[in-house]
Amino acid sequence: MAEDQADEVVTQQTFEWPTYRNAPRRQREDNVSVFWGRVSARDATAYIRAAQGRSDEPLDKDKPRIRVRQLSVRKLREAGFVLVPKPGRVAYPEHYVVFWPSEAAPERVWPPEVQKAFDQCFTGEEEGWEE
């Protein structure tokens, strides 16, 4: 069981590879969205595009910059991040949010060292659209 937990990951998607968001967007959000477990770039992107109001596939020219990476749940928790399930009404992929508990409300800006700590939870596993 302990080993299972150690291996647990969440998946983060980007439309702008090699960059991934490592902090909430200022004034808009207070968390970073991820998906529980290993989720393909296609499934993660389908979720996000549905959330955006778009039901079509991305353009071919945009696909090379669409990727997903895995973050270690154990490392996130050890670094002080809080993961909260927010699946809403969709069964798969299972949406979670990552919070940084802070007194810096209401903007809840993640300081540079927190952003770096978030990036350091990357397991090294990454996958593109066609993989």
Partner: peptide
């Protein structure tokens, strides 16, 4: 019902009335 960073689809109540909201483009 669905969020990514912030809520995108769901419902809220105004008085007794239930209202659905949805991002059409976000």
């Amino acid at each position: 019902w669905m969020e990514y960073g912030h809520p995108r689809i769901g419902t809220f109540r105004v008085g007794h009335d239930l209202v659905m909201f949805a991002a059409a483009y976000d």
